[in-house]
């Protein structure tokens, strides 16, 4: 039963990632694209966790943690750049 639920969930999260890519391409403004990229990395974390369950290993969770940290820093840096024109003042 878990396996079926796992496959359905992976399909849903992948579809969500595709919709995010659509928003990255379509825009129309820079903040929209950054927001879509932000959502995309959260989806990537979900996919890594699902992969861990599918392969029955906890090895990949550390990479999920790293993506969470780096994605947040990236989003904040991009937002700061859009607002101020530079990241570090």
């Amino acid at each position: 039963m878990i396996l079926i639920a796992l496959y359905i969930t992976i399909a849903m999260v992948t579809l969500a990632a595709l919709l995010n890519v659509y928003r990255v391409i379509k825009g129309p403004d820079a903040p929209d694209r950054v927001l879509a990229l932000d959502t995309l990395y959260v989806n990537a974390i979900a996919l890594i966790v699902l992969l861990g369950i599918a392969l029955q290993t906890r090895m990949y969770l550390e990479s999920a943690l790293l993506i969470a940290v780096m994605g947040f820093v990236g989003t904040v840096a991009m937002a700061k750049y859009l607002k101020r024109g530079s990241v570090i003042e």
Partner: peptide, 21 residues
């Protein structure tokens, strides 16, 4: 419990992306 949580999580992620689109 695991299956329901997985499906609910996937559904919410998908709904968030639909909202974004």
């Amino acid at each position: 419990a695991i299956s329901v949580l997985l499906l609910v999580g996937g559904a919410f992620t998908l709904i968030g992306a639909i909202g974004l689109a």
